[in-house]
Design a protein around this nucleic acid. Structure first.
Lengths: 174, 174
DNA sequence: TATTGTTATACTCTATAACTATA
DNA sequence: TATAGTTATAGAGTATAACAATA
């Protein structure tokens, strides 16, 4: 297959250089903050920006240390707090489609953190059960949440944190 | 390649059925809400749950109608509000790595929504400029934000919305 | 016929290393 | 030697359709 250039040449040729010398690349003057324009009123934008912070915190405090992805962490904590649950309920709680949940459970089962038990009352259904290893890993990872959240203490007061979570729950609508 | 079963058989055989009849599958009793346990204090969990709502709203109001992805929308609105910007600044503002930004700009440039202009003062650098088509699409998509946000009116008061955005900005830390 | 869960698959999103060109 | 941007590539995340087993 012939390779085609994906990008047209820039429209300003290099010859169009300004004569005047300019600030060096190691600049001391900070960039002015960008105007958000319409974005400043778009809740989803701010949610996404906040997620950059929370995802980064998660990776450092829990993802890396315990080898867990965000959804895996949530799923395990739900099992710890509620006891065995069906894939269906887990999928609803975590907004996961069936196929993706299947693969997720496969990974956690391969690590011996949980197992699938067939429902005694409905042969189509399963109960997802934490193994002993799953329980202890989840407990440890759960305790790592506290220091993670404490990282926000210099950005949010305790009252602000509570208020923020309450407002996010209203947006989530459940 | 021989196909190997990815999943071990369930450990409870079908014979282990309870004798007592049980609620039919078309159940009228709603599932009890799950306990969040540790998750109730994990800000990132609530941010992710709220994002399910905002992403869904975005898809219906802007993503589908205008053929824009979330980051594309944000990027275009930043250009509309600030005029030409370098890829570097766009990447910083939107938390995009260089390679991903390059592909993103390729797509938008292929749609003739923006173009790359070489900086007159630094041959390494570029200015990303909205085309006329890009400007008008962005303007239209920008106006669609208002009705989208109004969908939240039954979940958040005006004051709550403002408070929420303010708190999310603190979390984002910029 | 409807529901639970699975398989196969593809597309989007994000991350990393190596490279080009300019400075 | 450092910076801006690109290329190539792989991995994670998410979506859809078709299927099996059970109800």
């Amino acid at each position: 297959m012939p390779t085609m250039p994906r990008r047209a040449p820039l429209d300003q040729p290099p010859e169009a250089r300004a004569a005047m010398p300019v600030a060096p690349s190691t600049r001391r003057t900070a960039d002015q903050p960008l105007s958000l324009g319409v974005l400043s009123d778009v809740l989803g934008y701010h949610v996404a920006q906040a997620a950059v912070t929370t995802v980064d915190m998660f990776e450092r405090h829990i993802g890396q240390p315990y080898g867990l992805r965000k959804v895996e962490y949530s799923l395990l904590l739900l099992l710890l707090a509620n006891g065995p649950l069906t894939p269906k309920r887990l999928g609803q709680a975590l907004a996961l489609s069936g196929p993706n949940l299947t693969l997720l459970l496969d990974r956690l089962q391969d690590r011996d953190l949980l197992r699938r038990e067939r429902s005694a009352t409905d042969g189509r259904s399963q109960n997802i059960v934490l193994t002993e290893a799953g329980r202890s890993l989840t407990q440890a990872a759960g305790e790592a949440a506290a220091p993670m959240e404490r990282e926000l203490d210099d950005r949010l007061s305790r009252a602000e944190r509570l208020m923020l979570i309450e407002l996010l729950r209203k947006v989530a609508g459940r």
